[in-house]
Simulated assay, not measured.
Amino acid sequence: MATAPAIDRADTRPDMSDAEWKARQELAACYRIFDHLGWTESIYNHITVKLPDEPGAFLINPFGLLFSEVTASNLVKVDIDGNVLDGSDYPVNRAGFVQHAVFHRNLPDAHAIIHTHTTATMAVCATEAGLLPTNFYACNFIGRIAYHDFEGVTVRDEEGERLLKNLGDKRILMLRNHGPVVMGMTLPIAFVQYWALQRACEIQLATLSMGAPIHVSQEVIDVHQRDIFMAQASAEPGRADFDAWVRRIDKIDSSWRE
């Protein structure tokens, strides 16, 4: 399917490697997808991606810009100690950096990390029961998500140890009274996980407003989780979903590629 033409990295940012430019374009597209879906919170919240050819470095959105203003070029490259590596004049939000850096530093498979404050996911994070096994999408996650009690805005480095301890071997952390942190080995994986989690939370809110929900049994959940990957449209989980949304965004505004 046709997409907008790629912008040549050599013409735009000759100081960057091809791997970095590709990562920047993919991440910028993801920000625009989130904006299109309404999963934004003014100038706050973050999606970050490790650079594949530069250990210890990752990309984050410039603090002060809306998701709709993020482009491949204006993403900020930082290291896990908070040093800006690309000479960007944009600041980085400490509340976002601290949380993402602790996971990027300590989890080799946390290549992409998403944290946003959607109404549905925050609402579920604010309930004692958390995510319930009451719908198709929720069954994807039962037994595969962790919870962390609210400690205030995440600007203190010392909270990192507790975040990691509560996460354990999971890769989705529901910050109680706050919102979800979704991690993936690739950005498309993190994206499709967040998409499904968002749908699970939206449906849970709608279901609980109607009365007592039907809970899916653990036996059925186990079968569902065993078979769910059969529904993937490509060999790389999340890739077909992500690329489809990129095509949608390109039809609206392809300036994210710049």
Rank of each mutant, 00 (worst) to 15 (best):
L66D: 14
P133L: 09
P108Q: 10
G184L: 06
F103R: 00
L132Q: 15
D81K: 09
T154V: 15
N61G: 14
A129H: 14
L66M: 15
N166G: 00
L131M: 09
C125M: 06
Q99C: 12
K77G: 00
A126W: 07
Q99D: 00
R105C: 01
G184A: 08
N106H: 02
I172V: 14
F150K: 04
T134K: 00
N166R: 12
L173W: 01
L132V: 11
D169F: 05
D79K: 00
T121Y: 04
V153H: 06
L107H: 00
S68Q: 11
T127F: 02
T71V: 08
Q99E: 10
H115R: 07
P188F: 07
F150Q: 04
T154L: 08
E158V: 06
L131Y: 04
A123W: 09
G64H: 04
K170P: 04
L173R: 02
R105Q: 12
V98L: 00
L167M: 13
L167H: 03
G143N: 12
H178P: 08
V124D: 05
V102C: 04
I80F: 02
D109G: 03
M185A: 15
L173S: 04
F141H: 05
V92H: 07
G179Y: 02
N93T: 00
V78W: 03
L132I: 10
A95G: 15
R162C: 03
N166A: 03
A112F: 03
P62S: 12
A95Y: 04
P91H: 07
L163Y: 05
V70I: 15
H117W: 07
P188L: 10
C139R: 10
E159Q: 12
T116C: 15
L187Y: 07
V78A: 04
I189L: 14
I142R: 09
L131V: 09
C139P: 03
L85M: 14
N61Q: 08
N61F: 05
H111L: 11
H104E: 02
F136G: 00
F63K: 04
S88P: 11
N166L: 01
E159I: 00
T119G: 00
E159V: 01
S73Q: 15
R162W: 06
V84H: 11
D79S: 01
F150I: 05
H104D: 01
S73P: 05
